[in-house]
Design a protein around this nucleic acid. Sequence first.
DNA 1: ACAGTTATTCTACGAGCGTTGAATACGGTT
DNA 2: AACCGTATTCAACGCTCGTAGAATAACTGT
Lengths: 205, 205
Amino acid sequence: MWTVARGRKGRRPGSPDTQDEILQAASREFAAKGYDGATIRGVAAAAGVDPALVLHYFGTKEQLFIATLHVPVNPAAMVRGVLDDAQPGEIGERLISTMLGVWDATAHRSPLVAVLRSVAGEGPVADTVRQFIEHSIIAAFAQRLPGPEPQLRAVLIGSQVIGLLVGRYVVRLEPLASTDPARLAAIYGPTIDRYAYGSLPPDGA
Amino acid sequence: MWTVARGRKGRRPGSPDTQDEILQAASREFAAKGYDGATIRGVAAAAGVDPALVLHYFGTKEQLFIATLHVPVNPAAMVRGVLDDAQPGEIGERLISTMLGVWDATAHRSPLVAVLRSVAGEGPVADTVRQFIEHSIIAAFAQRLPGPEPQLRAVLIGSQVIGLLVGRYVVRLEPLASTDPARLAAIYGPTIDRYAYGSLPPDGA
DNA sequence: ACAGTTATTCTACGAGCGTTGAATACGGTT
DNA sequence: AACCGTATTCAACGCTCGTAGAATAACTGT
């Protein structure tokens, strides 16, 4: 891939877009190991570059992580899109199939996995990601749900989606990881719809 | 070898049972930060003890982690218990309410969270935990499901359970984290039952 | 040819990590 | 009191990490 003569110093000839190479390497690295597990040195090695160069471009590890998050599709926008142009009764299926369609494409998968791996950690980054999930994605949902207790309905949906994503992409549970997306959409769709529009048992059950 | 049975001569047990204090501190520490994030030094500090003492008792960080996992309820046994003495149609509700009942008790919660946080990581520990989940819990389920494709049904259930646990205990999504367990059981129960006994859409959907 | 800018590397610091082996405090036995 | 074994600590090792600053190499405009 990258041919770097070990003894050579200074700027590499041809000047490829090193910054982007670093960003992609970082994306893979964060996806594989989460924020805490990934290392600047590992990213640099994967990009065939000196660790200092990574920080020269991105300033700090946290900023590098945030930079990788700009790559993927905006999830809140996706939620809004699905909710707006699908009719009730098929929303769940549309949501799942859209999501799986987007993230089965390897180009966008690794930032997703990076996020999933990072929410398990702690510290400012994990908190940031958690707040993003809570205030951006969940809120986008709750805002568009008609029935009572939209907040609860939104997190119910969230819990099933999280379980699916973690099982399929992080833990890679079989046969969940290799089942056809359309079929999963047909399976999970009714669950989502029930959470979104079905009746909820009262509190004193 | 390390944790030899208490001898009869020499200095008798530490003022309180120090070894157990360390174990509990470790349990909290692993729960809070996952395997990679937790540190021997942190555990030692929390237990008011020297780091070397921790390793003197438990040998290595990995063995310490494994030792903390022996504390909680055996999940596979719990699954079998629920499946055996509940009748179809209420299995989902029983499963969820049993699980939440066990893990809402603070005594057993932190090992669970430690496991959940650790599967997100990588390396031998994460793999071990993943295999444990796959071969022990999921298999216990699949073995007792009657319909076709029990393996798929088991992971579908697993995905919803994972989502609930991560949302409630790790991310602490509101209002999921504070909703009454009985109500959650009533909500999630039918979903579980549908995955377990309902019809599954064919593959060519 | 020369100066300027940018890309890249080198070297190093200080901190935190898991782990180790030797040293010390203490309780029980004789 | 002497002794032994356990409990606990101390001090250090080798490692990896994020980060900083100075140094070098290549390209660009003059």
